[in-house]
Write a protein that binds this DNA or RNA. Structure first.
Lengths: 166, 166
DNA sequence: TATTGTTATACTCTATAACTATA
DNA sequence: TATAGTTATAGAGTATAACAATA
């Protein structure tokens, strides 16, 4: 794994491995945290991450969101949004409301119960995140945040972004 | 959560949001890269990430690995390993070989074709990783690598790192 | 009895494509 | 014709639990 030769190819090779090692570490740290959060959401609130994410989208939009907009924001196809909203509606956490201007569409809202449930989950979720990131002191968290800014959206054209926007 | 209204609380609140913002950024950067890799593996090699990962485990172990060991390393239950190995064996990329000492177990190996296929995929995979991380200069990648070291395995005390416990 | 691995089952998320109803 | 959303279907990964064969 060690150069000792200094020609470009060897250096390039070493860099490759550096990027790969970084990627594996990035992936494993993220996956570990995400799995923990997913598990706790399930155990403590009986909810999945996609459903939590959908509720998080709605929580910021008092006027509700259309199915199409949810589909775009969550970056999944329409059929999936239908099924997630169906499940949440069955639990009376969200509600489809007719859209005055367009009878094909409706606005999906959090219900009062949904808003309350989400508040509790969001509080817990935030405390888990703090706990799971706590091995890193605040200042280093800030550094990490800045470094990741460059990778956040993968530059211009590659691909739209995902669940937890900012 | 309730400590009364003090500076502490305000500071804590601010920190919470900082951690949350960091987490969302970490998740979105990682997910974006992972989704891209997953999609390219599927399009260019007709393989999924779990299958690729399983082959990667085998590639480093000339003597093969037992199903149980694969299950531990991939942090999924045994039934899943059976099904992934079934699929790979059907494509003749891996092979179950009887274990001399224990007739319940066998060693799973890459076949020669599997080894060849994996080499091609791994080369492509590495170049994608380099590409996707390239917005970040090498030195900053190194910084990121170090910062993530602290989060890699979630520290001692927090939780028994059981992947999918229950 | 304990361990290795398989089978059976179920659930969630995902995508694609055909479909309905509006526009 | 085009758009908003649904339904139908399929495939992958995951988990649990019961099971067979062997230790």
């Amino acid at each position: 794994m060690n150069a000792g030769h200094t020609d470009m190819e060897v250096r390039a090779h070493a860099d490759h491995h550096a990027s790969l090692r970084l990627w594996l570490r990035l992936l494993s740290a993220t996956t570990r945290i995400e799995d923990t959060i997913r598990q706790r959401l399930r155990e403590q609130f009986g909810i999945t991450l996609p459903r939590f994410d959908l509720m998080a989208q709605l929580e910021r939009e008092a006027q509700g969101l259309s199915m199409g907009e949810l589909s775009r924001r969550m970056m999944v196809t329409g059929g999936n949004v239908t099924s997630i909203v169906d499940q949440l509606e069955k639990e009376q956490l969200v509600q489809r409301q007719p859209q005055p201007g367009d009878r094909r569409a409706y606005a999906v809202h959090l219900t009062p119960a949904g808003r309350e449930a989400f508040a509790a989950m969001a509080t817990a979720h935030e405390s888990w995140v703090i706990e799971l990131l706590s091995p890193l002191p605040a200042q280093q968290q800030e550094q990490l945040h800045q470094l990741l800014g460059t990778l956040k959206t993968g530059q211009p054209s590659l691909k739209p972004i995902h669940p937890h926007p900012e």
